[in-house]
């Protein structure tokens, strides 16, 4: 049993024009201690997936079906009080917007200490000590002073460090990070990433890392999940995916990467390549492959038949009629 098992997840939004199928039949696993990267163009359902894991998606307008099993328990029918005990304690979350994700009227120390007081019934003094310890852990200088400062007194990078401190304060088994570096300067991005890498080895949390940055994927994750239009189109180890991307969409995304095997450190920020064309309207019924209108390899069959997700090589899944299949994998 994996730590997190997502099965046939459906996230639909009722809108004026119809039902937006933001996530449609998504399944994936995250093992304890493992780092899974999730990539895909904006709007493909990464954020709503991560929010649904913590039960933070507003329903309505959202409607969620399928299963999200954490340690074997399906969170989609867990009670709100059970979810509250899970949030911040067993599953931590970091968001994309460090400038606005901290409450402006409480000190950094109060905000880090809150989860400790909530989940470990710690006293005010204990929570403050833990906050200082966490600030030191996330590399904020003079933590004894910073603990009493307010968010507006911290830079963007410092605020994201503080967010990481909040998310990790109770040693969660799973950390969900939704584009934690996207809003930061390139040099700060590298620092935050190094920090997360460092903390992973110390804390041992599993990580679901949503990112636009292939440099981050290469540096950080063991496995990659590529999403397109609310579905998984490819999944493989980082090595396999970079070496032999099998889905034309992934191949398009990877076009920006200089050459396979060349160094992809955190210093080199490599954004996903732009792929011509637009994502299909998810509130209209789709026929055939969702990528067909933009795919350079599309054939007549692609517009008729939706390609199933298949194992194309050991541990390598792709959803494409024409993705090469290794002989041994069939």
């Amino acid at each position: 049993m994996a730590l997190l098992e997502v099965r046939d997840l459906q996230i639909h939004f009722r809108t004026a024009t119809g039902v937006n199928r933001a996530v449609d039949g998504l399944s994936f696993d995250i093992e304890a201690g493992e780092a899974l990267a999730v990539v895909g163009e904006s709007g493909c359902g990464k954020s709503v997936t991560s929010m649904s894991i913590l039960g933070l998606l507003p329903t309505p307008p959202g409607k969620i079906a399928g299963q999200i099993r954490f340690r074997g328990q399906n969170l989609l029918n867990a009670s709100e009080s059970r979810m509250r005990k899970l949030r911040g304690a067993e599953i931590g979350m970091i968001f994309q917007e460090p400038m606005t994700s901290l409450n402006p009227v409480f000190t950094i120390g109060q905000q880090i200490g809150e989860s400790v007081r909530l989940h470990e019934k710690a006293s005010r003094a204990e929570a403050r000590d833990r906050a200082i310890e966490m600030l030191r852990l996330v590399g904020i200088p003079s933590p004894e002073r910073r603990v009493d400062e307010y968010p507006h007194q911290l830079s963007g990078g410092m605020r994201q460090r503080a967010m990481i401190a909040i998310a990790l304060a109770c040693n969660p088994a799973l950390l969900v990070a939704d584009e934690p570096t996207t809003a930061l300067d390139v040099t700060i991005q590298a620092q935050i990433l190094d920090l997360m890498q460092d903390l992973r080895s110390k804390v041992g949390s599993a990580v679901m890392l949503i990112t636009h940055d292939l440099g981050v994927v290469a540096e950080f994750a063991e496995r990659v999940l590529v999403m397109y239009a609310g579905r998984k189109v490819e999944e493989a180890t980082v090595r396999d995916l970079f070496r032999t991307p099998r889905h034309p969409y992934t191949q398009g995304l990877l076009k920006a990467v200089p050459r396979l095997g060349s160094s992809l450190g955190a210093e080199t920020s490599v954004r996903l390549a732009e792929i011509p064309g637009r994502v299909p309207d998810l509130s209209k019924p789709l026929r055939g492959c969702a990528f067909a209108d933009r795919c350079p390899r599309a054939q007549e069959v692609c517009h008729r038949i939706d390609p199933a997700l298949e194992t194309k090589a050991a541990g390598h899944l792709a959803a494409c009629h024409f993705a090469p299949r290794e002989v041994s994998a069939a």
Partner: peptide, 15 residues
């Protein structure tokens, strides 16, 4: 609607 409300909920704070 603010992001810090989402953060508070993600910590497990009660309604």
């Amino acid at each position: 609607q603010q992001d810090y409300i989402r953060t508070a909920r993600a910590k497990g704070a009660a309604g």
